[in-house]
């Protein structure tokens, strides 16, 4: 009986390898358009635009970290990304908490607005802000009429303008990502907190936020990637007249001026490293904070 079973099993296991054929299209697609391009990108980043005979050099990287315009690009990218991520997560926390605390038609409307606007970024977003706050924008003109100075002086075509737009597209995404996490907060905990004499602020500081930390950090890492890699919004507003990592990367491959693909490859690798650091940090936090669940 046992022997028969074993024979049948081994027959099955040779037979099942035929099914690997169904995996072939996937492997081809991923190899050709994901793995090989990324490997080439890394290899290219160690070669030089000027001298193709050099097989390995770190010159591109030293150039990136010592040239003022690339330093500025990294700084601008990181500052805009961090501010928009920070503001995004705070607003999303308040928004998701509000959605969690309410019911009925207005909540459904709120969710619908979030869903509808979560895909609203890039060229259309930049355009809408130009209509609103551009040099001849609607709000600008109203401000001119009534002499509201801080709006009159606001210049959309700067990193400030860019930051506002990035905050815009972070909010719906972050709120939608956080709302499910709030379902994990039980009403009994609110009651226990009240019985022990705690107020609402104490509840969130001592119980709510610590519970939500894994979700908050994973949402933040999505926001970070989302804003660091955003290209269309910045390009539609400022074209290539601004130092920002995605703009510089793209301009070194396709552009009116002379292209520098190897340097662009190195810039892309730097950007990927930033993303990796954030993802690893997020994994570390998740591991640290979810330990208690297993106990």
């Amino acid at each position: 009986m046992d022997g028969k079973k074993r024979v049948a099993k081994s027959k099955l296991s040779t037979y099942r390898y035929y099914f690997l054929i169904a995996l072939v299209p996937f492997i081809i697609l991923v190899a050709m358009y994901e793995v090989m391009p990324l490997i080439m990108l890394v290899i290219d980043s160690f070669q030089l635009d000027k001298d193709p005979s050099v097989a390995f050099s770190l010159d591109n990287y030293t150039k990136i970290f010592s040239t003022l315009s690339y330093q500025k690009a990294m700084e601008n990218s990181l500052v805009i990304t961090l501010i928009s991520t920070g503001v995004g997560i705070v607003v999303a926390f308040l928004g998701a908490r509000a959605a969690h605390e309410s019911h009925g038609r207005y909540k459904r409307f709120f969710m619908a607005v979030l869903n509808m606007t979560s895909n609203f970024a890039g060229v259309p977003l930049a355009f809408a802000y130009m209509i609103l706050l551009g040099n001849a924008g609607v709000i600008k003109q109203i401000a001119n009429m009534y002499g509201i100075e801080f709006i009159q002086n606001f210049d959309l075509y700067t990193s400030n303008g860019l930051t506002i737009m990035y905050i815009y597209f972070q909010i719906p995404l972050a709120t939608l990502l956080l709302i499910p996490a709030f379902n994990g907060i039980r009403n009994e905990w609110h009651e226990a907190n009240e019985l022990l004499g705690g107020n609402t602020a104490q509840f969130w500081l001592r119980i709510g936020i610590p519970i939500l930390i894994p979700s908050l950090f994973s949402t933040m890492s999505v926001l970070f990637a989302n804003s660091l890699c955003a290209y269309a919004t910045a390009y539609a507003l400022l074209m290539n007249n601004f130092s920002l990592l995605p703009l510089n990367i793209s301009a070194s491959f396709v552009g009116d001026i002379k292209t520098k693909p190897k340097l662009g490859a190195a810039l892309s690798v730097v950007m990927m490293l930033m993303l990796c650091i954030v993802i690893l940090f997020n994994n570390f936090i998740t591991k640290k904070t979810t330990k208690w669940e297993g106990r």
């Binding site: 607003v91 308040l94 928004g95 908490r97 509000a98 959605a99 605390e101 309410s102 207005y106 909540k107 409307f109 709120f110 607005v113 979030l114 606007t117 609203f120 977003l125 355009f127 809408a128 802000y129 209509i131 609103l132 609607v138 815009y168 909010i171 719906p172 709120t175 609110h190 609402t200």
Partner: peptide, 28 residues
């Protein structure tokens, strides 16, 4: 949940909705 938090939830949601809808509405 008490009434106070209900009210503040509505205020937060309304502010977020205005922020998100304003650019769209203006362009339309």
């Amino acid at each position: 949940m008490n009434k106070h938090s209900h009210k503040s939830a509505y205020i937060v949601m309304t502010l977020v909705i205005i922020w998100l809808v304003l650019p769209l509405l203006a362009t339309i």
